[in-house]
Each structure stands twice: as C-alpha cells, then as structure tokens.
C-alpha cells in the first residue's frame, strides 16, 4: 500500500483525535509510533488494519470514519493542499464532479506509483449524477467510496453548492466490469452559498 494513503490516515486520526490516540493504535498493532512515511511502500492490508483499530476504539463503523476522513482531507486547515488541487477541477461544483473522471490519471502524473480506483461520472439527468468507483473486486474501491462521499460533500461546501449525496452500493444490473461502488449526487443548488476563495497562484 502506498505510504501517501497511510500517511493521510495517520494525519487524519492524529489531527482529529490527538497524538495519544494515534500512539495507542500503533501500540495495538505493534507498529512504531512514528507511523508511516508518505514516500515509502507498505504491506497492502495495513490501511484497513489501522482504520479498523481506530473504528473499534471509537466504537464507530469503518465507513463512517472514512466519510469523516474525506471531509477532513478537504476542509481541515492543515490539509489546504488537497483542497487546492481539487479546486483546479474547474470553476463550479459540476466542473469538479466531471474532473473526478480524470483524477486517478492526474494523481499518477504526480505520483506514478499511486494507483487509485477508476472513477466514472455518469450524467443521469439535469443536476443528477452517478459516480462509479472502481470495479467489483477492486480492493481500494470499497474503502474509497465512503471516503469520496465525505470528500465530495466537503467540496460542495467549498464551491457553495447545495447537494444530496448517498452511497448506492453495487449496481448489479451493470456488466461486471462496471460494477463498482456507486454514489448518487443530486445538485439542488449550484450557487447556494458563497464559494470559498480559490486563486490559481499558490498561496505564499
């Protein structure tokens, strides 16, 4: 598993629940407390193991934790870099949604060995979309879907859009190669509130 993913989990757990909580999880798993390096590669099931330990300690489901992590990645002041990279998707929330199609490819441009599940945005009608995450059996697709629910919700806030988002589960009516986890997104109002400031230039 790519260290960037593990590092993101580490920052999320540490920034939200504190360093002691993080160290307790590492101790549970008999791992060194300094955690993970973003630019190294680790065992494939480590991310799930860490999240499951955190979920057990917090008495929550892994999916609800992942949803919070998606929100954290976009809205936490320490993670403004992620928000900025996602805002490059376009001026409005719908532009952002369409840019998700190209996100895994974009990510590979910057970090060639970070392979994310394929994302596909289908237009169901005016202001109605379905995002398919990966294909059935894709190990990362299952945790990625709830994370994206939180992340898209936070990006909607960032763009000032009012949306309804829900995980749909696997669409078994589709051919097997398209049976990823699906997310329904309904845009109720694209300009509900003022969007957060975004400029192309990197903040000093």
């Amino acid at each position: 598993m790519h260290g960037l993913i593990l590092r993101a989990i580490q920052c999320f757990l540490r920034d939200i629940w504190g360093a002691a909580f993080w160290q307790a999880i590492m101790a549970d798993l008999r791992l060194p407390s300094q955690g993970f390096e973003a630019m190294l590669t680790y065992a494939p099931d480590l991310g799930t193991a860490v999240l499951d330990r955190a979920a057990a300690r917090l008495n929550r489901s892994r999916d609800s934790l992942l949803e919070d992590m998606g929100t954290y990645l976009v809205s936490h002041p320490r993670r403004d870099g992620v928000r900025r990279l996602l805002r490059f998707g376009g001026p409005g929330f719908v532009d952002f949604l369409h840019s998700l199609d190209h996100l895994p490819g974009r990510v590979r441009l910057a970090v060639p060995d970070l392979v994310l599940p394929a994302l596909h945005v289908a237009v169901l009608g005016p202001d109605r979309f379905r995002l398919t995450v990966g294909v059935a059996g894709d190990a990362l697709a299952t945790p990625m879907a709830p994370l994206l629910v939180g992340l898209i919700r936070a990006m909607a806030d960032d763009h000032g859009a009012l949306v309804m988002i829900e995980a749909e589960g696997h669409d078994t009516t589709q051919p097997l190669s398209c049976q990823g986890a699906a997310i329904r997104i309904d845009v109720l109002d694209g300009h509900h509130a003022l969007a957060r400031d975004f400029r192309l230039a990197t903040p000093a």
């Binding site: 960037l4 590092r7 390096e37 973003a38 630019m39 190294l40 870099g81 900025r84 990279l85 490059f88 974009r106 990510v107 441009l109 910057a110 970090v111 192309l200 990197t202």
Partner: peptide
C-alpha cells in the same frame, strides 16, 4: 496551462514530502 499549474503544485507537495523524508 491550468493543468500545468496543477502539476507544479502537486509536484511541489511530493518533493516536499521527499525532502522531509530525507531530513529524517
């Protein structure tokens, strides 16, 4: 051009991580 700017920013983030790994 905007994609280029995206890549400049993403690369800066990646090389920042590499630098801090090297320092440690």
């Amino acid at each position: 051009t905007v994609d280029l700017l995206w890549l400049v920013e993403a690369n800066a983030a990646v090389s920042g991580e590499l630098r801090s790994l090297n320092r440690r």
